[in-house]
Amino acid sequence: MRLPAPLHDLYERWLSRRLPRSGRVVLNQKRIFIFPTGYGFFYLLVASLLFIGGINYENNLILALSFLLASLFLVAILHTYRNLSGLGIRNGDSESGFSGASGALEVILFPERRDHLCLWLYWQGQAAQQVSVTGGEESSLWLNIRLNQRGRILAPRLKVESRFPLGLLRTWSYVSLDHYCLAWPTPQEWPQCPADGGDDHSQQVPTGRAGNDEFQGLREYSPGDSLRRIDWKGYAAGKGLNTKLFEEPAGGRLWLRWDRLEGMGDEQRLSILCHWVLTLDQQQLPYGLVLPGMTLAPDMGDVHRWRALDALACYPEFD
């Protein structure tokens, strides 16, 4: 069912006023909607048919049967409502992705006081996922999200739905979680590395491991030393475990700079920087990143890459 556009907008505004975004929501009667399903209407029709039958055959027992069906329906309203009432939903983790691809948001469901069975969760245009919250334990669910553009992609309005126990009624609620997923820029290939530093400020693409660290000597390994600096050759030769000491030359690290891509659109700049972050990471070169309002010191590794990509996604508003 699709409402006409102005009405739909009104409805959307009403909903967002009634259900403001929050990082943690417990479903209560303000948020829960309930309405019979198609089967529920069919069931009521059957109850009415039995009622008419009971009247016409002057059969009180058939009348009682139709009343029993109606009573079950009434009681089912309470039970269906109860299955959603008191369900808590809060933010979980998030999994970022490149824009154009998909990311995922984790939603954690927790019970306030009772079990919640056979819940269906989805947001517009996604297949519903089923989950039950039992035994006072939290359940978590990963929901995919399309990353249509770079930046913080806010969680769409989540629909939580349940028909348990009789399927006669559908109870649902909308939850706007204050939760977002970062969409990294789509990498765009660009021949020139927008970087300072490296060898003589050259803008050449550094290849392979630059010999920019000067070996100073060895000392005995102590816990906490980086494993990358261990003298493995020496260890293999039976000289014991030693840590190599280096002296880092100034300017030996690459700084990817926003400024070096002047005359382009913001998104394009970010895409190129993204491409280079990935390239340098692949080549295992330490790199730093300078964006207006944010500077990331040179480092390397997975965590560093993520932080760089997240920074590109967050531009221009960093936490």
Partner: peptide, 23 residues
């Protein structure tokens, strides 16, 4: 549970819903 809760409601309906003459 549903059934036991429905039965008293059924009794109320049975006693109070007016009996219509056969159609």
């Amino acid at each position: 549970v549903l059934f036991l809760q429905a039965v008293p409601v059924t009794v109320v309906l049975f006693v109070l819903v007016p009996r219509v003459a056969p159609l």
